[in-house]
């Protein structure tokens, strides 16, 4: 069956590796209510893809520095500028996208897999991309393991954390960088535009089943893996685009969990 094909094995591995990152980081995105910021980082990252095309480098590798740069800009803007935070995010969001399209237009020739960066195409994941994803997962898991307590303090009550002497702003920038790295992994799976689905749906679904942040992370990894493998399989069976199938599967399961979970009415 499907696993006879090497590209299906790679796709399966990629969806599990991406699930680990978005399961953990998505929990912070959801509980700290920084969905819009994460959307800004992921869309701005498209500028990195354009830069990759323009310079003739593997786009995913260009997205890493570009995504981190936009995360840092968004994080700094929040603290310094007189603009309101969501206006600033909106500006960076759109400028990153525009820059990406501009650079692709300036690149001679045709950009063959442009759509796959916008909407994902997990079937195109190469073995070398898998190694990059594994490395990113290891970075994310290690940093969260080391800074779990500090992240909990700043996500629950940033002001109190600042007052008692925790370097809140620096830790917040680290968290935004982790979001940028997660975005890089998810671009392959669901694309720049649909990244937000896998950053929010698995975490929000797991919130309905537990009151504990650690358990939420575990459950949310499971949900993300389940959604992406099921979506992948359905897209193979019915010859559908993989990214949007994964997102729709996530959305449908989330609605079912929301409507049936016992007595929980958490507003996430």
């Amino acid at each position: 069956m499907a696993l006879e094909y090497g590209f299906m094995v790679n796709a399966l591995a990629a969806s599990i590796l991406a699930a680990i990152a978005c399961g953990i980081i998505g929990v912070y995105v959801v509980v700290k209510r920084i969905v819009f910021i994460s959307g800004g980082i992921s869309h701005a990252s498209f500028g990195g893809i354009g830069l990759g095309y323009f310079l003739g480098i593997e786009p995913v590798l260009c997205v890493i520095p570009f995504g981190i740069a936009s995360a840092l800009v968004i994080g700094e803007v929040r603290r310094r500028t007189l603009l309101s935070e969501d206006t600033a995010i909106g500006v960076i969001w759109a400028m990153g996208m525009a820059l990406g399209i501009m650079l692709i237009a300036l690149t001679p020739g045709y950009a063959p897999d442009l759509l796959s960066y916008l909407f994902g195409n997990i079937l195109m994941v190469s073995r070398s991309t898998l190694w990059v994803m594994l490395a990113l997962d290891m970075i994310i898991v290690t940093v969260v393991w080391l800074l779990y307590k500090e992240f909990l303090a700043i996500t629950f009550d940033e002001e109190f954390a600042t007052v008692i002497g925790i370097p809140t702003h620096k830790l917040y920038l680290v968290l935004l960088c982790l979001i940028a790295l997660t975005v890089v992994m998810l671009i392959r799976v669901v694309g720049v535009i649909l990244v937000i689905a896998l950053l929010t749906i698995p975490a929000a679904a797991s919130r309905r089943l537990t009151n504990d942040l650690r358990k939420m992370m575990g459950l949310s990894i499971l949900f993300a893996a389940l959604f992406s493998t099921t979506g992948l399989y359905l897209s193979y069976l019915f010859d559908l685009p993989s990214g949007s199938t994964i997102v729709l599967v996530s959305g449908v399961v989330f609605l079912l969990v929301s409507l049936t979970s016992p007595g929980h009415s958490f507003k996430y």
């Binding site: 307590k149 303090a153 919130r207 537990t210 009151n211």
Partner: peptide, 12 residues
């Protein structure tokens, strides 16, 4: 709605 226990709030 934040998923945190009383114990963990105080520990922060």
């Amino acid at each position: 709605n934040f998923p945190i226990s009383v114990r963990d709030v105080v520990l922060t």
